[in-house]
Amino acid sequence: MQNTKIKPWLCGVAVLMTCSALHAEAPSSRAEPLSRIVFGSCIKQDQPTPIFQPMLAAKPELLLFTGDNIYGDTDDMPTLRAKYDKLARNPSFAALRNACPVLATWDDHDYGANDGGADYAKREESQTEFLEFWQTPQQSPLRKRSGVYDAKIFGPAGQRTQVILLDTRYFRSALKTGDRRVGGPYVPDDTPTKTMLGDQQWQWLKVQLQQPAQLRLIVSSIQFVASSAGQECWANLPLQRKQMMDLVQSTRATGVLLISGDRHWSEISSVTPDGGYPMIDVTCSSLNQLHARGTPTENDFRISNTYHRENFGILSVDWQDSDPLVQISVRDIEGKPRIEKTIRLSELSLQ
């Protein structure tokens, strides 16, 4: 019988993350370079999860859960906890997160409020439930600060992968609404005081982008690159979106690749702002929660087909090549590729 007991040292989102002080360099927790990362978003805890089997068969060296890891949608913490508990009792989920280290951030549904931001009244309590579910150690910095943003570096010098998990919920300002479009009611708002990440998280992110790493995966629960079409995305706060692009360029952070979820379909988007740094966003969604409409919103920056059934992502890196090859693959419930893209690591830099 397979042992499905959860190993705390593998499951803790904070066990695997962050430096002990804001300006300290994060040490690597893995001697070998990461060559296979599996990721996904949007798990309806009450529905079957056959997608976990091909994810396990992919032999991940790291798992990333990028948001909506349950559908909590409540300000009642016992209810939220019960929904986490239901996912934890899923044998396939337990086996999957027993297989390798796990990192996670949240989106609105596991945060507790659909499209919720800083105005969600139970955000502090919800953070406690999140940290408990992911078995975060009591001594972790996440227990002492607001928000679940965190980072981790894997691999030896010259072959380092940095994973940066953003919190796009805890500090996010209220969104502006207008006439409802296909994706929803939200419209771009250039009010300079509005924020996506909050001042402290922005300062922290600047420090992380200056850490030595060859490949940097920035996990944003909502889409970063996609154009506004009514849905939640960074384009709703265009000044914050620009701040991210400017920060990547000013820190001269190489190897940046964005991973997002939320949309209940998968696609790849890309934009190259002035300065020549291509921002590529791999949206991977969902693991078992299908979109009722089945058609995507408009996206001026889409560079791939879209896929609308259950899916997960695989990021593979060939570190033996002099210019490492990064392969992106979105797989279906049978493990077959549905969206693919290959990038040389040298392409993820100022051109």
Rank of each mutant, 00 (worst) to 15 (best):
T342N: 14
M279S: 10
G275K: 11
A95P: 01
I51C: 07
N299K: 04
A113T: 06
Q327L: 10
N305C: 05
V102M: 09
G158V: 14
I37S: 11
Y149V: 00
S260P: 01
I259A: 02
I51K: 04
Q289V: 13
D300Q: 11
A174V: 15
Q200S: 12
A14S: 15
R172K: 15
S29M: 09
G230E: 08
N98P: 01
I70S: 00
S146L: 12
H264C: 07
G155M: 07
I218W: 02
L22I: 12
R145S: 07
P137N: 05
T128S: 08
L257W: 04
S220V: 07
M17Y: 01
Q53P: 05
V326L: 10
Q203R: 13
S140Q: 09
A292I: 10
W134S: 10
D281H: 11
Q200D: 12
I153H: 00
S140D: 13
L80K: 10
T4L: 12
G72A: 15
Q249E: 13
D68I: 12
T74N: 08
E334M: 06
L287A: 04
K176Q: 15
T79R: 11
R302T: 02
I218D: 00
C42P: 06
D300I: 04
G276F: 13
W234V: 00
D199Y: 02
W134F: 15
M244Q: 05
I328A: 02
C233N: 14
T272P: 08
Q223W: 05
T18N: 11
N3R: 07
A99V: 11
K194Q: 09
R302M: 10
Q289S: 15
A253T: 09
P8F: 04
R216V: 04
Q127T: 07
V207T: 14
A82D: 08
S140P: 06
P91I: 10
P324E: 03
A31S: 14
S146K: 14
I280D: 01
W265S: 01
A235D: 15
S269G: 04
Q53F: 05
T79A: 12
V248T: 12
L239K: 08
S29A: 10
Q211F: 06
L142N: 05
D179F: 09
N236Q: 09
Y149D: 03
G276T: 09
K83R: 15
A253F: 06
A95T: 07
F52C: 08
Y149M: 03
N288Q: 12
W202H: 12
R30I: 06
I328R: 06
W134M: 08
R97A: 00
V326A: 13
G67W: 03
D68H: 08
D150W: 00
R309H: 12
D68E: 14
P101Q: 07
V317A: 05
K152R: 15
Q240D: 05
S250G: 01
N288P: 03
L217V: 06
A151I: 01
K341D: 10
P91T: 14
P192R: 11
F130E: 05
P33I: 03
N236L: 04
T49F: 12
E61I: 03
K7F: 04
E25N: 06
G183C: 09
C233A: 15
P324F: 06
G230T: 11
S221V: 04
P54W: 05
T251I: 06
T136G: 02
L166C: 02
S349P: 04
M1E: 02
I37H: 05
